[in-house]
Structures are given as C-alpha cells and as structure tokens.
C-alpha cells in the first residue's frame, strides 16, 4: 500500500515544504472575513426533522392554506389504498365459519357455549346466587342474565390435602348447581320456612286471622 511507502520523517518533510510554499504565496483574501459570508447568520429554524410550520403557505403570493394540509393523513391513506370488492356470498360463508370457531388460541380455544336446558338453569342460578345465603354478598349484575358467548363446563377436582376443607361429600354431590341447591333446600327447608314466615305476616289481620280469633273467643266462652 502507498501508506506504508512514506516514513513519518518523510511526511514531516512534505509538510514543511508545503508550509514554505504556502508562506511564499501572497494571500489575497482574508480568511476570516471571507468565511463570514458563509457563517450561519442565524440559529436554525427547527431542530427536529419535522418542523412546526404555519398552515399558510409563505411562498404563494396570496394567503393560502398549504394544500398538503387540506387532506388529513387518514384520508390520504384511505385514498391511496386499493379498494377491495368482496363477494357477498363468500363473505357470508366466511362469517359463518368464524362464528363456529372458538374464542381463539389466546383463550385456549374455548368453545362456543352449548346452551343445554341444564346449563341455562345453572346460569340463572348463578345470576341469582345472592338470595341463597343471607350472609354472603355478591357484586351486582344487570337485571337480565347474560349468557356468555364462549364457555365450557368443568368439574373442580379437589387435591388430597383438601379432604376436610375443600370437599363435598359424595352424598352432597350432584350433577348441576341447581340440583345441589334443591338438595340443600330439602335438608334445611330454609325457603319453605321463609315462605311460611312471610305468609303469616302477610295474612295477619285477614280471613284466617279472624277465624282464629273467633275460635279463641268461643273457647274462652266455653271455658
């Protein structure tokens, strides 16, 4: 390579010669004042790639909004895009296909709800679960029970450590929530009692009440 041909001393000599030549040349121009013309007289208008500019075009003779601003970015994008014409029949078929599909791989392909009468009852029960236990409170839902678009019914299998805490005995186990609740009602008859309570309160002062009163009176007279 040419770079290796010169030693440092040779290069220094070259530069010294150059210095001699340059001193000999009478300079006609003053460097400082000459470069002054090229001096940026001002700071930059903008420091970014996308400067903030006026909407009014400064170059046009009359005041005029720069036509580039009249169409928004979104409109321009839409205008530049090729228009896609779709066959309506094909679209319908495609839509049906999509409807059959699952909730997607992000949701572990959860299938569309298969609404059997049992599931429907269960969902209704879940919606009204607030009345089952007076000590337990749940967040309010809308008045109309909503059926989920995608759902699956499963059974929780308790672990071996939960034998006493998180387990239903075989006797209590039923196929659906509704059956379980019915069974509990059979044992505790809470709703039946509650019904009786309400009825007695509601009917007090009416026909049955009056009859009982009369019977009491006659009893007193007899006695």
């Amino acid at each position: 390579m040419a770079g290796q041909d010169y030693s440092d001393d040779q290069l220094l000599q070259l530069l010294k010669d150059a210095e001699g030549r340059l001193i000999a040349v009478k300079k006609t121009k003053d460097v400082t004042t000459q470069s002054l013309a090229s001096l940026q007289n001002s700071i930059n208008k903008s420091s970014t790639e996308k400067p903030i500019t006026s909407y009014i075009n400064p170059l046009s003779k009359i005041a005029q909004v720069d036509p580039a601003y009249l169409v928004t970015e979104e409109q321009r994008k839409q205008a530049n895009r090729a228009r896609v014409v779709q066959d309506p029949v094909a679209v319908k078929i495609n839509d049906a296909k999509i409807k059959v599909a699952t909730a997607g791989s992000q949701w572990y392909n959860l299938p569309r709800t298969n609404l059997t009468p049992e599931l429907k009852r269960d969902l209704q029960l879940l919606h009204m679960r607030g009345v089952l236990d007076p000590k337990r409170h749940y967040k309010k839902e809308g008045s109309k029970p909503k059926i989920p678009e995608f759902s699956q019914v499963g059974t929780i299998i308790e672990g071996p450590t939960e034998f006493f805490s998180g387990r239903l005995s075989n006797k209590d186990r039923k196929r659906t929530f509704v059956e379980e609740v019915m069974n509990t009602e059979k044992m505790s008859s809470r709703f039946k009692n509650k019904y009786g309570e309400i009825q007695s309160a509601k009917t007090s002062g009416k026909k049955a009440h009056y009859k009982a009163l009369k019977a009491k009176r006659s009893g007193v007279l007899k006695g």
Binding site: D8, V25, K27, V31, S35
Partner: peptide, 17 residues
C-alpha cells in the same frame, strides 16, 4: 484553520501524530 493557510501543514503534522 483554513486549508490554504500557512499554519495548516504544521498543524496537520500534529494531527497526524
């Protein structure tokens, strides 16, 4: 420095080292 000034060659020598 300006490239055509007489100080330039010696400055370039410093620069080279």
């Amino acid at each position: 420095l300006d490239v055509t000034s007489s100080e330039f060659p010696m400055a370039l020598a410093t620069s080279l080292s």
